[in-house]
């Protein structure tokens, strides 16, 4: 299991290859990647991501440990960036490895649902006209209830 909170970019291919290597008994690798998307009406100049150093790593470790306990996983990876990102840059990724795909898919969804609402990150969208904090969505909080 590995957690990385970093301001530098990561390479999805390299991370996925490294994650998959060395797990001879894992038949399924699932990855999810979050990407900065442009805004339809007011072009996005940048997304700034603030976090709570210390608590962020602890919260992500706790969420990943829960996933490892609840599903039959061989390994889990969470990478999340902070700082200033531009559209099309990758914000974060999760990867899960299991013997069969069902556990890997479900655990990846669980990681994403919890990470969105329980890890201390806050996004701000910077455009030519405004710099607004992204509001949390009720459906993101509701998504936790299914677990």
């Amino acid at each position: 299991m590995r957690i990385s909170v970093q301001d530098t970019p990561f390479d999805l291919g390299t991370e996925t290859t490294n994650f998959a290597a060395g797990h001879r008994d894992m038949g399924a690798i699932v990855t999810f990647t979050g990407v900065v998307r442009d805004l339809p009406d007011d072009p996005l100049e940048a997304m700034e991501i603030e976090h709570y150093p210390g608590m962020t790593e602890a919260a992500l470790t706790d969420i990943a440990e829960q996933a490892m306990t609840r599903w039959s996983l061989g390994d889990a990876l969470v990478i999340h960036r902070h700082g200033r990102l531009v559209p099309s840059e990758m914000i974060m990724m999760v990867a899960t490895a299991s013997r069969h795909r069902k556990d890997a898919f479900e655990a990846a969804e669980f990681l994403m649902d919890y990470l969105k609402s329980r890890a201390p990150f806050w996004k701000r969208e910077i455009t030519a006209k405004s710099a607004d904090w992204v509001a949390a969505r009720a459906e993101d909080e509701d998504a936790l209830k299914r677990w």
Binding site: G34, I49, H51, Y52, G54, M55, A58, A59, H80, I91, M92, M112, L115, K116, S117, R118, A119, P120, F121, W122, K123, W133, V134, A135, A136, E141
Partner: peptide, 26 residues
């Protein structure tokens, strides 16, 4: 002390309290 909690949480022996809006990671 870096764990999410409620507003009725006790503060005895606590070193650090943080206030923030709902989180928007991912």
């Amino acid at each position: 002390d870096q764990k999410l909690t409620d507003f009725d949480a006790p503060l005895k022996g606590v070193r650090e309290v943080a206030f923030f809006p709902p989180m928007t990671g991912g």
